[in-house]
Design a protein around this nucleic acid. Structure first.
Length: 676
DNA sequence: ACACACATCGTTTTT
DNA sequence: CGATGTGTGT
């Protein structure tokens, strides 16, 4: 039995005890949100609710695993929670059983962003009449946003992509063609998973089955759900109406994915009987850090006023350091980290956060020089790396001969095959009776293309031979590794040995799955990522490491010491994002999220100049907004007292404490400095 | 119809 | 600087 009264505070306890019916829990950063959800689930289980009647929706798979683990520890059982995971995972699980109602085969393939784009590219080709046409990436963004926000294509273009307004007709045509192609190929993209679940739930019998089954629904990170997701939840909760959502409007950072903060703000309107709970006690950060966070967010106008109070007082003020350029910044951070580790902080209790994945490049070089190992979150996912996707594509063809995107990928790689020959092959494949007839296809091709196709067959035939019931997906991956594909890797890449190791890892992962479809779906929905260095390690070793992460990926996590780098002009806020409606506020929330990850030490840095394309560097406007009393800014103050030397069309500044002079390109930063 | 060399464009965040 | 598109030559 769990002693809820002792292990939870009053705010949290209220949620656990009175969480029936529609409930909105407004949980500030570090207020024990995860704790509250896990205890609520444990409470329900203790009351005898069967696990399969609980639906737990999280933002990432990682969060789902973490919660299941914590629930298991709490209840002291190995109880699985079969219905926990991301929206996409849950949708996938249901669709694997019922997608035939929508005209799919249950073995449908899930396309990732690249595949969708490749397919859209084909569609664009069919309709494009002018030279200036949005790229496949942009068209994909338009389509995806429109579907997730449940607005039609025209409205989406008008509101968010107005530069293409005159082409909305054609873009709609491209969209229809794309939909058609997906249906023909029995494939779904990420958005289809949600949309099709929505459609499925329009069928009364199915809706009744699931809304009857899910007696309790819990949704984490509700501020980052979109309209579509909210309507799915609403539909699933129709019978029991036990829907408990947890979120923090100040941490809404996914509007680019059509996340709609109105889901939280209008919750009471939608569910008039809703109960509202607030968690306002912060257990994570020292008051000094929280004060800075509160100060930053207070510049936003669209928000619920909040009074987050820290339990921990008497901490250290956050630090702010300007640095010469990005390499100085990186050197400095490495020095600070070595310092912290020497003084006893565990490496895995330190994180370096940044606005965009590529901001970490300098730092990674410095860390490599210093021999410091790190875990990397964000950026390219493991399953998005080129060689991994190649191998997946062969498997996908095996799984679904109509998978156009997979065909394109493997065919275009072969010498002698271009778009035209590839299309010829793909069209012919659709009419194929049995897979063995594939070998005859070469005959319809010209000389060069035929050679290319034969090279493809050398790989694919090895795979076909390995495709027997006794084998699992891992053996199939091995088969490809042992085929001509290895030679290809060797000739194409200098790091082919590394890549082969990646594939071996992939085989191990694949071997955990019973069937091919299951493995392929996991692969496309997995957010598990890693730069090559990190994946060969056992989890225990991984946990010892310093963490590098984008701020988005850092959501929900916490560390003793946090460094936020490149808090600079043209970097943070990101200018494109800031120019969206309310974009600046979202960027500010992003900084808020970053700051509130820190428990004890918080350091912000920025470069004065940068080599990177078109950027000016210097302090971010967010830094000029903050109350200077809240930061330990003596490093900054020393700037003001210095005389600028304007020789050689370059401004030089000799700091009082540092030994290195700082060179600044004439530009905006001077004005900003005066504002400080 | 393709390959290969050269130019140009824009560069966020993720299931 | 890297991915993507254009142009030319085979």
């Amino acid at each position: 039995m769990i002693n809820f009264e002792q292990e939870l505070n009053e705010e949290q306890l209220a949620v656990i005890k009175n969480g029936d019916g529609p409930c909105l829990v407004l949980a500030g950063a570090g207020s024990g949100k995860t704790r509250t959800i896990t205890y609520r689930v444990a409470y329900l289980l203790e009351k005898g609710i069967p696990p399969e009647n609980i639906l737990l929706v999280t933002f990432t798979n990682r969060a789902a695993h973490e919660m299941i683990e914590r629930v298991q520890t709490l209840t002291g059982t190995e109880l699985p929670l079969p219905w926990s995971g991301t929206f996409h995972h849950i949708a996938n699980k249901i669709l694997r059983q019922y997608s035939t109602h929508l005209g799919y085969k249950n073995s449908f393939t899930v396309l990732d962003a690249d595949d969708s784009q490749a397919l859209i590219k084909l569609c664009i080709k069919e309709f494009k009449t002018t030279d200036r046409f949005p790229s496949a990436k942009v068209v994909n963004a338009i389509i995806s946003f429109s579907r997730n926000s449940q607005k039609d294509i025209e409205t989406t273009i008008e509101e968010k992509f107005s530069a293409w307004w005159h082409l909305s007709r054609t873009i709609r045509d491209v969209y229809s063609r794309y939909e058609q192609k997906k249906k023909e190929g029995n494939v779904m993209d990420f958005d289809d998973l949600l949309i099709n679940l929505g459609l499925l739930l329009n069928i009364p019998a199915i809706q009744e089955k699931f809304s009857n089954q899910f007696r309790y629904i819990l949704v984490d990170e509700y501020q980052d759900t979109n309209k579509l997701q909210a309507s799915i939840i609403n539909s699933l909760a129709k019978i029991h109406r036990n829907i408990l959502v947890v979120g923090d409007d100040a941490q809404s950072i996914y509007s680019f994915r059509a996340a709609d903060i109105k889901n939280i703000l209008n919750f009471e309107e939608k569910y008039p009987e809703a109960k509202i709970f607030r968690l306002e006690t912060n257990y994570r950060s020292h008051q000094e850090i929280l004060s800075l966070a509160n100060d930053v967010i207070s510049n936003n106008r669209h928000q619920y006023p909040k009074q987050l109070k820290a339990i921990k007082i008497d901490g250290i003020k956050p630090n702010l350091y300007p640095k010469n350029d990005q390499s100085d910044e990186a050197e400095f951070i490495v020095k600070q980290i070595k310092d912290l580790i020497e003084k006893g902080t565990d490496a895995h209790q330190i994180a370096i956060l940044f606005r965009a994945a590529h901001h970490s490049q300098m730092l990674e070089m410095e860390l490599a020089k210093a021999g410091i190992l790190y875990d990397y979150r964000g950026g390219l996912r493991f399953f998005d790396r080129a060689h991994i996707k190649d191998v997946l594509s062969y498997l996908r063809i095996l799984n679904n001969l109509a998978d156009t995107a997979a065909w394109l990928r493997v065919l275009l790689r072969e010498e002698g095959i271009g778009p035209t020959a590839a299309n010829k092959i793909i069209t012919a494949v659709q009419k194929l009776e049995k897979i063995e007839d594939l070998k005859q296809l070469g005959e319809i091709l010209g000389g060069k293309a035929q050679l290319g196709f034969n090279n493809f067959l050398k790989i694919f035939e090895v795979l076909l031979e390995a495709y027997i019931p006794e084998n699992n997906p891992g053996d199939l991956v091995d088969a490809i590794v042992n085929s001509r594909y290895s030679d290809y890797l060797a000739t194409e890449y200098t790091d082919s040995e590394e890549r082969k190791k990646d594939l071996e890892q992939m085989a191990i992962f694949a071997a955990k799955h019973q069937n091919l479809t299951g493995f392929l779906t996991e692969a496309s929905l997995q957010e598990s990522f890693a730069k090559p260095a990190a994946i060969n390690l056992k989890p225990a070793e991984q946990q010892k490491r310093l963490v590098l992460s984008t701020i988005h990926q850092a959501k929900g996590l916490e560390w003793e010491a946090v460094f936020i780098i490149n808090v600079a002009n043209d970097a943070f806020p990101n200018s494109r994002s800031a120019s969206e409606p309310n974009g600046l506020e979202e960027e500010r929330r992003l900084l808020y999220v970053a700051i509130t990850r820190a428990k004890k030490h918080l350091t912000l840095t920025y470069p004065m100049s940068t080599e990177s394309w078109g950027a000016t560097a210097g302090p971010s406007i967010f830094l000029t907004e903050i109350n200077q009393d809240l930061i330990d800014d003596h490093h900054l103050l020393s700037y003001k007292s210095t005389v600028f030397d304007r020789s050689d069309n370059e401004i030089q500044y000799i700091p009082e404490e540092d030994d290195r002079p700082i060179k600044i390109k004439p530009g905006s930063f001077l004005r900003d400095l005066d504002d400080l």
